[in-house]
């Protein structure tokens, strides 16, 4: 490969400059682990593909929203929810190829929705209530996206039922799941130097 074809400016001094290399790598790797989990989970979801009404399979939905809550809970920096969810989605799009580029769009919506909730607290409050709100916001984003792209002809009653099931699944997997994971990770001693 050729060398030095052009110089890139150094990372600009924005609020993201507060990210240490360690924060970037740990967030990205959480995204990667969940990208692999998503890949397994796509098959779990597909195994229930013919259960009707579809809410009988939507109880698994929350797993896809975990990185958007887990990563910010550990890193506690602006952008962690969006970054982790996008990395996880990119594994699906690039390596696992399940839903293709739509995972990137879904990941952006799901990550951004959670991000907005954390931003509203100024990235200062990490109670189970805030985590639950972020998980539900992420589920609402996913639900709206799915209504538009996949369930465009489905009746409003079933859409409402889907929202309830997805919201509960999000709180279970993403909010309570993240708290349980952080507790286990802290016990294992890998979170030293992080706020969580």
């Amino acid at each position: 490969m050729s060398t030095a074809a052009g110089a890139q400016p150094a990372a600009s001094p924005s609020r993201f400059a507060a990210w240490r290399t360690r924060d970037i790598l740990v967030t990205a790797v959480i995204g990667v682990v969940f990208g692999v989990v998503f890949w397994v989970w796509n098959n779990v979801w597909a195994a229930f593909a013919f259960l009707q009404p579809s809410v009988l399979q939507d109880w698994v939905y929350g797993m896809w929203l975990v990185p958007a809550v887990l990563a910010p809970l550990i890193i506690r920096k602006p952008g962690a929810a969006l970054f982790a969810e996008m990395v996880a989605a990119s594994i699906s799009a690039l390596l696992g190829s399940q839903w293709g580029p739509d995972t990137l769009l879904s990941g952006f919506i799901q990550g951004m929705a959670a991000e907005l909730v954390f931003a509203a607290t100024g990235y200062r409050r990490w109670s189970i209530g805030v985590l639950g709100a972020a998980a539900v916001a992420s589920a609402v984003g996913a639900w709206a996206h799915d209504w538009w792209l996949y369930y465009a002809d489905v009746s409003v009653e079933l859409q409402a039922l889907r929202l309830v099931v997805m919201g509960l699944s999000a709180v279970g997997f993403a909010a309570f799941g993240s708290v349980a994971l952080v507790r286990s990770l802290r016990k294992a001693g890998v979170l030293e130097g992080f706020a969580a």
Binding site: F50, Q52, S54, Y151, A152, D153, V154, S155
Partner: peptide
Amino acid sequence: LTNLLFST
């Protein structure tokens, strides 16, 4: 199938 059975 979901769209078929629960169509508006």
